[in-house]
Design a binder for these strands. Structure first.
Lengths: 196, 196
DNA sequence: GCCGATAGTGAGTATTCACTCACTCACCAT
DNA sequence: ATGGTGAGTGAGTGAATACTCACTATCGGC
């Protein structure tokens, strides 16, 4: 695929249209699957969002599973980009400050829910081997990246991941919109950047 | 319903009473839904597990949604029971020791995966309002129970919940069966009681 | 023995959806 | 102009499945 686009590059003035379409479809899939999950989202919903016929989606992604996996992979890529951006706002010495900044960055990334929900849905669909493998791969990327980039202790990194998961629980249950004491306890210290 | 079963209690032969069947169905639902989630589990699977016709399952639980919710509720009940049992093994003064014991108890409860997976699936299906409400109710029960019973600080209770969520991630991705460094970092200190 | 009620089911129906296929169209090199 | 290639689609198909209904079986009480 990449070889193909490379060899084509000289003869074509325009970039390959199929790759552009793939992009559009992945972005549409990210949003569509985030809404209702792997099983409950028909690929017609993805196609409609991308403004493309369902048949062509299947030509580019032969199965719904591959389509979903592409969306999950994209989600992890976006998380890494966000963490890196946060890291750059902090001097490279202070591990805790960098972890904190990354936490902030992640909190605002998931403010629009789709990045968060894709992960929750992928976790739920992880009885499908390829999906579980993708989740494992994504987690590995993030953990090793955070550990190396911040140089924080194992405990701190583990805590970082654990509180990320807590964010997911808070959002899926909507408890941050609840005024009750127990809810404030759970959501304490979790930052919110309201979605625009 | 309970009045009825009381008056009927003396007599029985071939047919069982509806409450017994409800019980059997909820237990079957717990296992069946844990396998594949709300959307991907047909209620025929629940019926088959309970050894009952699908039509009768629908007579007792008018919609699949209600059936799933019953399973989720049962899951939270079982968690509470387990936490209480753990609490009783520890003297009532030491909040940290009690939280620790509860963590242990929870870890062995979710060793068989079904209690854990139901929660993950429920989280994923939480765009269904009634399911989200059930999750919120269950979380409320657990948080308020743990806080009151242990008397631990808000921070400690929040951490307890966060690391529970981390357990879910570890299990769904199977990373505890991985020898790699990053995986050990994430799973460090999480206890495992192997399923029998 | 029969009656009223409760337990229980076989055989549907209507719909949704993953995936397929035969086809058209736009473009470009010869 | 022509033929070849890749982008793109309309119209299916077959299987799965949530839910229904008309029906039978079993029971306790009289």
């Amino acid at each position: 695929m990449s070889i193909h686009s490379l060899t084509m590059k000289q003869t074509r003035t325009n970039l390959s249209d199929a790759d552009t379409r793939r992009e559009a479809i992945i972005e549409a899939a990210l949003l569509a699957f985030a809404d209702a999950g792997f099983q409950a989202t028909p690929v017609t919903a993805v196609a409609a969002r991308a403004g493309i016929s369902q048949a062509y989606v299947f030509k580019l992604f032969p199965t719904k599973e591959e389509l979903f996996i592409a969306a999950v992979e994209r989600c992890f890529t976006r998380i890494e980009e966000t963490l890196e951006k946060s890291a750059q706002t902090v001097s490279s010495g202070d591990a805790d400050a960098m972890l904190y900044a990354m936490g902030d960055g992640y909190a605002s990334l998931i403010a629009d829910r789709s990045i968060l929900m894709i992960q929750v849905h992928a976790q739920s669909a992880s009885d499908v081997p390829a999906i579980r493998a993708t989740m494992r791969g994504g987690l590995k990327r993030i953990v090793t990246y955070v550990k190396q980039r911040t140089g924080a202790s194992d405990e701190a990194v583990q805590r970082f991941i654990a509180f990320g998961q807590l964010c997911h629980l808070i959002t899926t249950t909507d408890i941050d919109e609840l005024g009750e004491d127990w809810a404030r306890l759970v959501a304490r210290g979790i930052r919110h950047v309201p979605a625009i």
